[in-house]
Simulated assay, not measured.
Amino acid sequence: MSAGEPFVVTVCVTCDRAAYPPRAVCAGCGASEWRHTPVAGGVLEHATILRRVAGVAGTSTVALGVVRLESGSRVIARVKGRPALGSAVALSLNEGAVLASPGKSKIKKWWKGA
Results as ranks from 00 to 15, higher is better:
K109C: 03
A27D: 15
I107P: 00
G4C: 12
S32Q: 14
G103W: 06
A3W: 09
L64A: 02
S105Q: 10
A57L: 08
W34R: 04
V43K: 00
T37G: 05
V9S: 06
I107C: 10
S60I: 08
S71T: 10
N94E: 13
H46V: 06
H36D: 15
C29E: 08
E33G: 14
V8P: 02
E5Y: 10
C26N: 11
T48G: 09
G42R: 08
W111I: 03
N94W: 10
G72P: 05
S60Q: 15
V89H: 02
M1W: 06
E95M: 06
T37K: 15
C26P: 10
P102E: 12
G65N: 03
P22R: 07
V98Y: 11
I49F: 06
R68N: 03
A63E: 07
V75S: 04
S92T: 08
A40S: 08
G103N: 05
V98K: 07
V98C: 07
G113D: 09
K80D: 15
G4A: 11
E70N: 04
H36G: 12
V8A: 09
R74K: 14
A27L: 11
G55E: 13
R68C: 02
A114Y: 13
L91C: 07
L44M: 05
L64S: 02
E95D: 15
A77C: 07
V43D: 00
Y20H: 13
G86Y: 03
D16Q: 10
I107R: 07
A97T: 08
T59R: 13
A31W: 14
V56E: 08
E95T: 06
I107M: 11
K108E: 10
Y20L: 01
L99M: 15
A18D: 07
P38D: 11
T10V: 14
K106I: 01
K112M: 12
E33P: 10
A100F: 02
A77Y: 01
V9W: 04
L85G: 08
N94I: 03
C12R: 00
E70P: 02
A97E: 13
C29D: 12
S60Y: 07
V79H: 00
R52G: 10
F7T: 01
A57N: 09
V25N: 09
V8T: 10
E5T: 06
G58F: 09
T59C: 11
L69T: 05
A40Y: 00
M1C: 06
A90S: 14
L50N: 09
L50S: 13
V62M: 04
S92D: 02
D16L: 04
L91G: 05
A3G: 12
L44S: 00
A84F: 07
T48R: 05
R68D: 01
A84C: 07
D16H: 08
A54S: 12
V66K: 03
G30H: 11
E45H: 03
V56G: 01
D16S: 11
A40V: 01
K108G: 04
K104P: 08
A19D: 06
G42N: 13
T59E: 12
A27W: 12
A47Y: 00
V56M: 05
S73G: 11
V79T: 04
Y20K: 01
R78E: 07
T14V: 14
A90G: 12
R52Y: 11
